[in-house]
Design a protein around this nucleic acid. Structure first.
Length: 466
RNA sequence: GCUCCCAUCGUCUAGAGGCCUAGGACGGAGCCCUCUCAAGGCUUAAACCGGGGUUCGAAUCCCCGUGGGAGCGCCA
Protein backbone atom coordinates (compact mmCIF):
# COMPACT_ATOMS: atom_id res chain seq x y z
CA UNK A 1 0.00 0.00 0.00
CA UNK A 2 1.34 3.38 -0.95
CA UNK A 3 1.48 5.87 1.88
CA UNK A 4 -0.52 8.98 1.14
CA UNK A 5 -0.27 11.81 3.62
CA UNK A 6 -1.48 15.36 3.39
CA UNK A 7 -1.15 18.84 4.73
CA UNK A 8 -4.45 20.66 4.85
CA UNK A 9 -4.10 24.20 6.13
CA UNK A 10 -6.87 26.71 6.03
CA UNK A 11 -5.92 30.10 4.65
CA UNK A 12 -7.62 32.04 7.39
CA UNK A 13 -4.35 33.13 8.95
CA UNK A 14 -0.78 33.30 7.74
CA UNK A 15 1.08 29.99 7.82
CA UNK A 16 3.21 29.98 10.95
CA UNK A 17 5.80 27.79 12.61
CA UNK A 18 3.23 25.43 14.11
CA UNK A 19 1.61 24.71 10.78
CA UNK A 20 4.97 24.22 9.16
CA UNK A 21 5.97 21.66 11.75
CA UNK A 22 2.83 19.65 11.09
CA UNK A 23 3.48 19.94 7.37
CA UNK A 24 7.05 18.81 7.89
CA UNK A 25 6.07 15.71 9.84
CA UNK A 26 3.50 14.79 7.25
CA UNK A 27 5.94 15.44 4.42
CA UNK A 28 8.73 13.48 6.09
CA UNK A 29 6.42 10.57 6.61
CA UNK A 30 5.48 10.48 2.95
CA UNK A 31 9.05 10.88 1.77
CA UNK A 32 10.43 8.32 4.16
CA UNK A 33 7.96 5.76 2.92
CA UNK A 34 8.27 6.78 -0.71
CA UNK A 35 4.67 7.82 -0.61
CA UNK A 36 2.59 10.66 -1.92
CA UNK A 37 2.29 14.04 -0.25
CA UNK A 38 -0.88 15.99 -0.90
CA UNK A 39 -1.48 19.68 -0.38
CA UNK A 40 -5.05 20.74 0.19
CA UNK A 41 -6.27 24.22 0.94
CA UNK A 42 -9.26 24.20 3.26
CA UNK A 43 -10.92 27.40 2.23
CA UNK A 44 -14.56 26.66 2.90
CA UNK A 45 -14.76 29.66 5.19
CA UNK A 46 -14.99 32.27 2.47
CA UNK A 47 -15.39 35.06 4.94
CA UNK A 48 -12.05 34.55 6.60
CA UNK A 49 -9.97 32.95 3.87
CA UNK A 50 -7.65 35.32 2.12
CA UNK A 51 -5.68 35.27 -1.09
CA UNK A 52 -2.63 36.46 0.81
CA UNK A 53 -2.77 33.59 3.29
CA UNK A 54 -3.06 31.09 0.45
CA UNK A 55 -0.05 32.62 -1.24
CA UNK A 56 1.99 32.42 1.95
CA UNK A 57 1.19 28.71 2.21
CA UNK A 58 2.24 28.10 -1.38
CA UNK A 59 5.36 30.25 -1.20
CA UNK A 60 6.31 29.03 2.23
CA UNK A 61 6.07 25.38 1.28
CA UNK A 62 8.13 26.00 -1.80
CA UNK A 63 10.78 27.95 0.06
CA UNK A 64 11.09 25.14 2.58
CA UNK A 65 11.20 22.52 -0.15
CA UNK A 66 8.18 20.68 1.23
CA UNK A 67 7.12 19.67 -2.23
CA UNK A 68 3.74 18.13 -2.86
CA UNK A 69 2.98 15.39 -5.36
CA UNK A 70 -0.71 16.14 -5.68
CA UNK A 71 -2.65 19.35 -5.40
CA UNK A 72 -2.97 21.97 -4.31
CA UNK A 73 -6.62 21.09 -4.09
CA UNK A 74 -9.06 23.77 -3.08
CA UNK A 75 -12.19 22.82 -1.19
CA UNK A 76 -14.10 25.69 -2.73
CA UNK A 77 -13.73 23.92 -6.08
CA UNK A 78 -15.20 20.71 -4.77
CA UNK A 79 -18.59 22.02 -3.75
CA UNK A 80 -20.45 19.82 -6.21
CA UNK A 81 -18.85 16.75 -4.74
CA UNK A 82 -19.79 17.72 -1.17
CA UNK A 83 -23.37 18.40 -2.23
CA UNK A 84 -23.45 14.97 -3.81
CA UNK A 85 -22.33 13.22 -0.63
CA UNK A 86 -24.79 15.20 1.44
CA UNK A 87 -27.60 13.98 -0.79
CA UNK A 88 -26.24 10.48 -0.47
CA UNK A 89 -26.23 10.77 3.33
CA UNK A 90 -29.75 12.16 3.35
CA UNK A 91 -31.03 9.40 1.12
CA UNK A 92 -29.40 6.71 3.21
CA UNK A 93 -30.68 8.18 6.45
CA UNK A 94 -27.18 9.01 7.71
CA UNK A 95 -28.18 12.63 7.84
CA UNK A 96 -31.34 14.60 8.37
CA UNK A 97 -32.60 18.14 8.01
CA UNK A 98 -32.75 20.15 11.17
CA UNK A 99 -35.09 23.11 11.46
CA UNK A 100 -33.98 24.36 14.84
CA UNK A 101 -33.10 28.03 14.72
CA UNK A 102 -29.85 29.51 15.95
CA UNK A 103 -31.74 31.15 18.77
CA UNK A 104 -33.28 27.87 19.86
CA UNK A 105 -29.90 26.20 19.80
CA UNK A 106 -28.40 28.95 21.86
CA UNK A 107 -31.00 28.69 24.57
CA UNK A 108 -30.56 24.96 24.60
CA UNK A 109 -26.81 25.30 25.04
CA UNK A 110 -27.21 27.83 27.79
CA UNK A 111 -29.63 25.57 29.58
CA UNK A 112 -27.28 22.60 29.33
CA UNK A 113 -24.28 24.57 30.52
CA UNK A 114 -26.30 25.81 33.47
CA UNK A 115 -27.23 22.22 34.29
CA UNK A 116 -23.49 21.34 34.12
CA UNK A 117 -23.98 19.12 31.13
CA UNK A 118 -21.88 18.78 28.03
CA UNK A 119 -23.62 21.13 25.58
CA UNK A 120 -24.75 19.09 22.62
CA UNK A 121 -27.58 19.03 20.12
CA UNK A 122 -30.50 17.17 21.67
CA UNK A 123 -31.75 15.57 18.49
CA UNK A 124 -35.04 17.43 18.28
CA UNK A 125 -35.26 17.08 14.51
CA UNK A 126 -33.93 13.52 14.28
CA UNK A 127 -37.37 12.08 13.64
CA UNK A 128 -38.92 15.05 11.85
CA UNK A 129 -40.37 14.22 8.47
CA UNK A 130 -41.94 17.52 7.52
CA UNK A 131 -40.41 20.92 6.86
CA UNK A 132 -40.94 23.86 9.16
CA UNK A 133 -42.27 26.96 7.52
CA UNK A 134 -39.96 29.92 7.27
CA UNK A 135 -36.81 28.06 8.32
CA UNK A 136 -34.00 27.07 5.96
CA UNK A 137 -32.82 23.80 7.43
CA UNK A 138 -29.25 22.72 8.11
CA UNK A 139 -28.21 19.13 7.52
CA UNK A 140 -26.97 17.11 10.47
CA UNK A 141 -25.06 13.88 10.52
CA UNK A 142 -26.87 11.16 12.41
CA UNK A 143 -24.20 10.14 14.88
CA UNK A 144 -24.59 6.74 16.55
CA UNK A 145 -26.26 7.06 19.94
CA UNK A 146 -24.51 4.23 21.65
CA UNK A 147 -21.19 2.53 21.84
CA UNK A 148 -17.83 4.20 21.58
CA UNK A 149 -15.29 5.12 18.98
CA UNK A 150 -11.67 4.27 19.50
CA UNK A 151 -9.14 6.45 17.78
CA UNK A 152 -6.06 4.37 17.19
CA UNK A 153 -3.51 7.11 17.26
CA UNK A 154 0.10 6.44 16.38
CA UNK A 155 1.30 8.97 18.93
CA UNK A 156 -1.32 8.83 21.67
CA UNK A 157 -2.26 5.20 21.51
CA UNK A 158 -5.92 4.22 21.73
CA UNK A 159 -8.21 7.03 22.74
CA UNK A 160 -11.84 6.14 23.37
CA UNK A 161 -14.82 8.44 23.05
CA UNK A 162 -18.38 7.58 24.01
CA UNK A 163 -20.85 8.25 21.26
CA UNK A 164 -23.16 9.54 23.95
CA UNK A 165 -20.79 12.45 24.34
CA UNK A 166 -20.88 13.27 20.67
CA UNK A 167 -23.83 14.95 18.98
CA UNK A 168 -25.25 15.28 15.51
CA UNK A 169 -22.94 17.80 13.94
CA UNK A 170 -24.01 20.10 11.17
CA UNK A 171 -22.56 19.06 7.85
CA UNK A 172 -24.35 21.61 5.70
CA UNK A 173 -25.30 25.12 6.71
CA UNK A 174 -28.74 26.56 6.00
CA UNK A 175 -27.34 28.09 2.81
CA UNK A 176 -26.32 24.62 1.72
CA UNK A 177 -22.57 25.09 2.13
CA UNK A 178 -20.69 22.17 3.68
CA UNK A 179 -18.77 22.48 6.95
CA UNK A 180 -15.21 21.68 7.89
CA UNK A 181 -15.42 18.27 9.55
CA UNK A 182 -17.54 16.97 6.75
CA UNK A 183 -15.32 18.28 3.96
CA UNK A 184 -12.27 16.79 5.59
CA UNK A 185 -13.90 13.41 5.65
CA UNK A 186 -14.99 13.51 2.03
CA UNK A 187 -11.61 14.81 0.92
CA UNK A 188 -9.55 12.33 2.86
CA UNK A 189 -11.68 9.55 1.44
CA UNK A 190 -11.64 10.82 -2.15
CA UNK A 191 -7.94 11.55 -2.04
CA UNK A 192 -7.30 8.12 -0.58
CA UNK A 193 -5.36 9.54 2.30
CA UNK A 194 -3.85 6.72 4.33
CA UNK A 195 -2.20 8.78 7.09
CA UNK A 196 -3.66 11.83 8.70
CA UNK A 197 -0.92 13.72 10.53
CA UNK A 198 -2.22 16.89 12.11
CA UNK A 199 -2.19 18.98 15.28
CA UNK A 200 -3.57 17.35 18.39
CA UNK A 201 -6.16 20.08 18.67
CA UNK A 202 -7.99 17.87 16.18
CA UNK A 203 -7.99 14.79 18.35
CA UNK A 204 -11.46 15.67 19.60
CA UNK A 205 -12.78 15.93 16.05
CA UNK A 206 -11.53 12.54 15.12
CA UNK A 207 -14.30 10.32 16.52
CA UNK A 208 -16.89 12.32 14.58
CA UNK A 209 -14.84 11.99 11.43
CA UNK A 210 -14.45 8.28 11.97
CA UNK A 211 -18.20 7.89 12.36
CA UNK A 212 -18.82 9.72 9.12
CA UNK A 213 -16.16 7.73 7.34
CA UNK A 214 -17.84 4.54 8.48
CA UNK A 215 -21.22 5.78 7.31
CA UNK A 216 -19.57 6.33 3.98
CA UNK A 217 -18.29 2.80 4.01
CA UNK A 218 -14.70 3.97 4.00
CA UNK A 219 -11.85 2.67 6.10
CA UNK A 220 -10.55 5.35 8.45
CA UNK A 221 -6.93 6.36 7.83
CA UNK A 222 -4.13 5.97 10.35
CA UNK A 223 -4.08 8.98 12.64
CA UNK A 224 -1.13 10.74 14.23
CA UNK A 225 -1.96 13.77 16.32
CA UNK A 226 1.19 15.74 16.90
CA UNK A 227 1.60 18.07 19.87
CA UNK A 228 1.34 21.76 19.38
CA UNK A 229 4.07 24.35 19.50
CA UNK A 230 3.90 26.99 22.17
CA UNK A 231 5.46 30.42 22.16
CA UNK A 232 8.75 31.00 23.97
CA UNK A 233 6.75 32.01 27.03
CA UNK A 234 4.91 28.71 27.06
CA UNK A 235 1.65 30.26 25.95
CA UNK A 236 -0.23 29.30 22.81
CA UNK A 237 1.49 30.51 19.68
CA UNK A 238 -0.10 33.68 18.43
CA UNK A 239 0.62 36.88 16.59
CA UNK A 240 2.00 38.20 19.82
CA UNK A 241 5.03 35.97 19.42
CA UNK A 242 6.27 37.85 16.40
CA UNK A 243 6.46 35.03 13.89
CA UNK A 244 3.55 36.12 11.78
CA UNK A 245 4.37 34.10 8.72
CA UNK A 246 7.02 31.54 7.79
CA UNK A 247 8.22 33.84 5.10
CA UNK A 248 9.40 36.21 7.76
CA UNK A 249 12.13 33.68 8.56
CA UNK A 250 13.29 33.88 4.98
CA UNK A 251 13.49 37.63 5.22
CA UNK A 252 15.39 37.45 8.45
CA UNK A 253 18.01 35.26 6.85
CA UNK A 254 17.23 31.75 7.98
CA UNK A 255 18.16 28.78 5.85
CA UNK A 256 15.15 26.57 5.07
CA UNK A 257 17.10 23.53 6.18
CA UNK A 258 17.89 25.14 9.52
CA UNK A 259 14.27 26.00 10.20
CA UNK A 260 13.24 22.46 9.28
CA UNK A 261 16.00 21.07 11.47
CA UNK A 262 14.82 23.14 14.39
CA UNK A 263 11.24 22.14 13.88
CA UNK A 264 11.91 18.44 13.54
CA UNK A 265 13.68 18.43 16.89
CA UNK A 266 10.57 19.76 18.58
CA UNK A 267 8.95 16.61 19.84
CA UNK A 268 11.41 14.30 18.18
CA UNK A 269 15.04 13.34 18.63
CA UNK A 270 17.58 10.86 17.42
CA UNK A 271 20.15 10.04 20.08
CA UNK A 272 22.29 13.02 20.91
CA UNK A 273 22.16 14.34 17.39
CA UNK A 274 21.18 17.96 16.91
CA UNK A 275 22.12 18.85 13.36
CA UNK A 276 20.33 17.10 10.53
CA UNK A 277 20.33 17.72 6.81
CA UNK A 278 17.09 17.32 4.97
CA UNK A 279 18.22 13.94 3.70
CA UNK A 280 19.16 12.75 7.18
CA UNK A 281 15.82 13.86 8.52
CA UNK A 282 13.96 11.97 5.85
CA UNK A 283 15.98 8.89 6.54
CA UNK A 284 15.77 8.94 10.32
CA UNK A 285 12.44 10.51 11.18
CA UNK A 286 9.75 8.20 12.45
CA UNK A 287 6.34 9.53 13.38
CA UNK A 288 6.06 6.85 16.04
CA UNK A 289 8.92 8.44 17.96
CA UNK A 290 7.18 11.77 18.30
CA UNK A 291 6.46 13.03 21.82
CA UNK A 292 3.03 13.69 23.23
CA UNK A 293 3.73 16.91 25.05
CA UNK A 294 3.61 20.36 23.55
CA UNK A 295 6.92 22.18 23.25
CA UNK A 296 7.92 25.79 23.49
CA UNK A 297 9.56 27.63 20.66
CA UNK A 298 13.13 28.65 21.45
CA UNK A 299 14.47 31.37 19.14
CA UNK A 300 18.00 31.03 20.50
CA UNK A 301 18.30 27.43 19.52
CA UNK A 302 16.91 28.16 16.09
CA UNK A 303 19.54 30.83 15.73
CA UNK A 304 22.27 28.42 16.76
CA UNK A 305 21.07 25.81 14.30
CA UNK A 306 20.93 28.39 11.57
CA UNK A 307 24.55 29.19 12.23
CA UNK A 308 25.45 25.51 12.19
CA UNK A 309 23.80 25.13 8.80
CA UNK A 310 25.42 28.28 7.49
CA UNK A 311 28.81 26.93 8.51
CA UNK A 312 28.14 23.68 6.73
CA UNK A 313 26.71 25.21 3.56
CA UNK A 314 28.78 25.69 0.43
CA UNK A 315 29.88 29.27 -0.23
CA UNK A 316 28.16 29.09 -3.60
CA UNK A 317 24.82 28.32 -2.00
CA UNK A 318 25.31 31.06 0.55
CA UNK A 319 26.14 33.47 -2.23
CA UNK A 320 22.80 32.75 -3.84
CA UNK A 321 20.94 33.43 -0.61
CA UNK A 322 23.07 36.46 0.12
CA UNK A 323 22.06 38.29 -3.03
CA UNK A 324 18.53 39.17 -1.96
CA UNK A 325 19.79 40.06 1.50
CA UNK A 326 22.30 42.48 -0.01
CA UNK A 327 19.68 43.75 -2.39
CA UNK A 328 17.53 44.59 0.62
CA UNK A 329 20.40 46.78 1.74
CA UNK A 330 20.54 48.42 -1.64
CA UNK A 331 23.51 46.55 -3.01
CA UNK A 332 23.66 44.62 -6.22
CA UNK A 333 26.50 42.17 -6.70
CA UNK A 334 27.05 40.51 -10.06
CA UNK A 335 30.32 38.77 -9.40
CA UNK A 336 29.21 35.36 -8.09
CA UNK A 337 32.72 34.11 -7.46
CA UNK A 338 33.59 37.14 -5.40
CA UNK A 339 30.35 36.85 -3.46
CA UNK A 340 31.14 33.22 -2.73
CA UNK A 341 34.57 34.26 -1.48
CA UNK A 342 33.00 36.78 0.85
CA UNK A 343 30.47 34.20 2.02
CA UNK A 344 33.29 31.79 2.78
CA UNK A 345 35.02 34.45 4.82
CA UNK A 346 31.89 35.25 6.77
CA UNK A 347 30.15 31.92 7.17
CA UNK A 348 31.68 31.09 10.51
CA UNK A 349 30.69 34.38 12.03
CA UNK A 350 27.07 35.00 11.18
CA UNK A 351 23.98 33.52 12.74
CA UNK A 352 21.74 34.64 9.90
CA UNK A 353 22.17 35.55 6.26
CA UNK A 354 20.90 38.99 7.08
CA UNK A 355 23.64 39.40 9.62
CA UNK A 356 26.13 38.06 7.10
CA UNK A 357 25.05 40.65 4.56
CA UNK A 358 25.40 43.42 7.10
CA UNK A 359 28.80 42.19 8.22
CA UNK A 360 29.94 42.00 4.63
CA UNK A 361 28.76 45.43 3.66
CA UNK A 362 32.24 46.94 3.73
CA UNK A 363 33.34 44.61 0.94
CA UNK A 364 30.91 46.25 -1.44
CA UNK A 365 30.40 49.83 -0.37
CA UNK A 366 32.57 52.82 0.28
CA UNK A 367 33.45 53.26 3.92
CA UNK A 368 31.18 55.72 5.63
CA UNK A 369 33.89 56.83 8.03
CA UNK A 370 35.24 54.86 10.96
CA UNK A 371 33.59 53.47 14.02
CA UNK A 372 34.41 56.09 16.62
CA UNK A 373 35.72 53.86 19.34
CA UNK A 374 37.64 51.65 16.96
CA UNK A 375 39.33 54.60 15.29
CA UNK A 376 40.16 56.25 18.56
CA UNK A 377 41.87 53.14 19.76
CA UNK A 378 43.57 51.94 16.61
CA UNK A 379 44.05 54.74 14.12
CA UNK A 380 46.46 56.72 16.23
CA UNK A 381 49.94 58.13 15.77
CA UNK A 382 51.15 54.80 17.07
CA UNK A 383 49.60 53.08 14.09
CA UNK A 384 51.36 55.18 11.50
CA UNK A 385 54.52 53.13 11.41
CA UNK A 386 52.94 49.70 11.08
CA UNK A 387 50.39 50.95 8.56
CA UNK A 388 53.08 52.59 6.48
CA UNK A 389 55.21 49.49 6.45
CA UNK A 390 52.33 47.20 5.56
CA UNK A 391 51.16 49.55 2.85
CA UNK A 392 54.62 49.56 1.30
CA UNK A 393 54.87 45.82 1.34
CA UNK A 394 51.41 45.33 -0.03
CA UNK A 395 52.03 47.77 -2.83
CA UNK A 396 54.88 45.59 -3.91
CA UNK A 397 52.82 42.42 -3.69
CA UNK A 398 51.73 40.97 -6.99
CA UNK A 399 50.34 37.66 -5.78
CA UNK A 400 47.23 38.98 -4.03
CA UNK A 401 46.26 35.98 -1.99
CA UNK A 402 45.59 35.37 1.69
CA UNK A 403 48.72 33.30 2.25
CA UNK A 404 51.02 35.97 0.84
CA UNK A 405 49.20 38.72 2.71
CA UNK A 406 49.45 36.69 5.87
CA UNK A 407 53.23 36.51 5.46
CA UNK A 408 53.52 40.21 4.90
CA UNK A 409 51.57 41.12 8.01
CA UNK A 410 53.57 38.70 10.12
CA UNK A 411 56.82 39.92 8.68
CA UNK A 412 55.92 43.53 9.36
CA UNK A 413 55.02 42.68 12.94
CA UNK A 414 58.31 40.95 13.41
CA UNK A 415 60.26 43.79 11.88
CA UNK A 416 58.63 46.33 14.13
CA UNK A 417 58.74 43.96 17.07
CA UNK A 418 55.05 44.39 17.60
CA UNK A 419 52.40 41.90 18.60
CA UNK A 420 50.13 40.85 15.79
CA UNK A 421 47.25 42.67 17.42
CA UNK A 422 49.10 45.97 17.23
CA UNK A 423 49.27 45.69 13.49
CA UNK A 424 46.23 43.69 12.51
CA UNK A 425 43.74 45.85 14.36
CA UNK A 426 44.77 49.13 12.72
CA UNK A 427 44.59 47.43 9.34
CA UNK A 428 41.19 46.03 10.21
CA UNK A 429 39.80 49.40 11.16
CA UNK A 430 41.40 50.92 8.11
CA UNK A 431 39.77 48.60 5.63
CA UNK A 432 36.49 47.73 7.35
CA UNK A 433 35.84 50.81 9.41
CA UNK A 434 35.22 48.64 12.47
CA UNK A 435 37.17 46.47 14.87
CA UNK A 436 35.45 43.26 13.80
CA UNK A 437 35.97 41.25 10.64
CA UNK A 438 37.18 37.89 9.36
CA UNK A 439 40.93 37.20 9.70
CA UNK A 440 42.86 40.10 8.25
CA UNK A 441 44.52 38.15 5.43
CA UNK A 442 41.22 36.73 4.24
CA UNK A 443 39.60 40.11 4.54
CA UNK A 444 42.20 41.82 2.41
CA UNK A 445 42.21 39.10 -0.18
CA UNK A 446 38.48 39.42 -0.68
CA UNK A 447 38.54 43.16 -0.58
CA UNK A 448 40.97 43.24 -3.50
CA UNK A 449 44.22 45.05 -4.07
CA UNK A 450 43.01 48.44 -5.22
CA UNK A 451 40.47 48.94 -2.49
CA UNK A 452 42.81 47.73 0.21
CA UNK A 453 45.62 50.05 -0.80
CA UNK A 454 43.30 53.03 -1.09
CA UNK A 455 41.76 52.41 2.29
CA UNK A 456 45.12 51.91 3.94
CA UNK A 457 46.33 55.18 2.50
CA UNK A 458 43.24 56.95 3.68
CA UNK A 459 43.58 55.52 7.16
CA UNK A 460 47.19 56.53 7.23
CA UNK A 461 46.23 60.12 6.51
CA UNK A 462 43.62 59.91 9.20
CA UNK A 463 46.01 58.43 11.75
CA UNK A 464 48.64 61.10 11.03
CA UNK A 465 46.12 63.75 11.89
CA UNK A 466 45.04 62.10 15.16
C1' G B 1 -19.29 22.74 33.63
C1' C B 2 -18.62 18.19 30.52
C1' U B 3 -15.27 15.18 27.31
C1' C B 4 -10.39 14.32 25.69
C1' C B 5 -5.07 15.14 25.89
C1' C B 6 -0.46 16.27 28.40
C1' A B 7 3.54 16.59 32.63
C1' U B 8 12.32 15.11 33.27
C1' C B 9 17.21 21.11 33.99
C1' G B 10 14.82 28.16 32.12
C1' U B 11 14.03 25.77 26.95
C1' C B 12 14.42 21.28 23.38
C1' U B 13 15.13 16.39 24.79
C1' A B 14 17.54 11.02 26.36
C1' G B 15 15.32 7.60 29.54
C1' A B 16 10.53 1.82 27.35
C1' G B 17 11.73 -1.33 36.20
C1' G B 18 17.89 -2.13 38.16
C1' C B 19 23.06 0.37 33.22
C1' C B 20 20.52 7.08 36.77
C1' U B 21 25.50 9.71 41.49
C1' A B 22 19.35 11.15 35.73
C1' G B 23 22.79 11.76 29.80
C1' G B 24 23.02 15.35 25.49
C1' A B 25 21.80 20.23 23.19
C1' C B 26 20.47 25.69 23.37
C1' G B 27 21.03 29.55 26.73
C1' G B 28 24.11 31.05 31.51
C1' A B 29 28.99 31.07 34.22
C1' G B 30 34.36 30.07 33.96
C1' C B 31 38.84 28.59 31.41
C1' C B 32 41.76 27.43 26.89
C1' C B 33 42.83 28.73 21.74
C1' U B 34 43.46 33.63 19.34
C1' C B 35 45.08 39.63 15.00
C1' U B 36 39.20 41.26 16.26
C1' C B 37 34.60 38.72 16.09
C1' A B 38 33.29 34.05 15.65
C1' A B 39 34.02 28.91 15.40
C1' G B 40 36.18 25.06 18.31
C1' G B 41 37.86 22.56 22.96
C1' C B 42 37.43 21.88 28.29
C1' U B 43 34.93 22.75 33.06
C1' U B 44 30.54 24.18 35.74
C1' A B 45 25.47 25.51 37.87
C1' A B 46 20.62 23.63 36.59
C1' A B 47 15.30 18.86 36.33
C1' C B 48 12.27 13.50 37.34
C1' C B 49 4.86 18.40 39.59
C1' G B 50 2.75 16.24 44.57
C1' G B 51 0.78 12.05 47.24
C1' G B 52 -0.41 7.13 47.49
C1' G B 53 0.21 2.21 45.69
C1' U B 54 2.59 -2.29 42.75
C1' U B 55 7.65 -4.31 43.19
C1' C B 56 13.41 -6.89 46.30
C1' G B 57 13.87 -2.28 43.27
C1' A B 58 10.33 3.19 39.96
C1' A B 59 11.87 9.10 36.29
C1' U B 60 9.94 4.60 34.07
C1' C B 61 3.76 0.68 35.75
C1' C B 62 -1.29 1.87 38.36
C1' C B 63 -4.55 5.34 41.08
C1' C B 64 -5.74 10.09 43.05
C1' G B 65 -4.58 15.09 43.26
C1' U B 66 -2.35 19.55 41.10
C1' G B 67 -1.06 22.33 36.98
C1' G B 68 -1.29 23.23 31.66
C1' G B 69 -3.76 22.49 26.87
C1' A B 70 -7.71 21.18 23.35
C1' G B 71 -12.77 20.41 22.04
C1' C B 72 -17.89 21.25 23.29
C1' G B 73 -19.94 26.89 16.67
C1' C B 74 -24.71 27.24 10.75
C1' C B 75 -15.14 28.60 12.63
C1' A B 76 -11.48 25.75 10.63
Amino acid sequence: MTVRSRFAPSPTGLLHIGGVRTALFSWLYARRHHGVFILRIEDTDRERSTEEATQVILDGMEWLGLSHDEGPFYQTRRMDRYAEVIQQFLAAGHAYRCYCTKEELETMRARQMAAKQNPRYDGTCRARTTPRAGVDPVVRFRNPLEGSVVVEDVIHGNVAFDNAQLDDLIIARSDGSPTYNFCVVVDDMDMKVTHVIRGDDHLNNTPRQINMLRALGATPPVYAHVPMILGADGAKLSKRHGAVSVLQYREEGYLPEALLNYLVRLGWSHGDREVFTRAEMTELFDIRDVNKAASAFNPDKLLWLNQQHIMRATPELLARYLKPQLAALGIVVDDDARLAGVARALQERAKTLKEMAQNGLFFFTELQGYDEKAAKKNLTAEAVRPLTLVLEKLQALTDWRAAAIHDIVNLAAAQLQLGLGKIAQPIRVAVTGTSVSPPIDVTLENLGRETTLARLQRALDYASRH
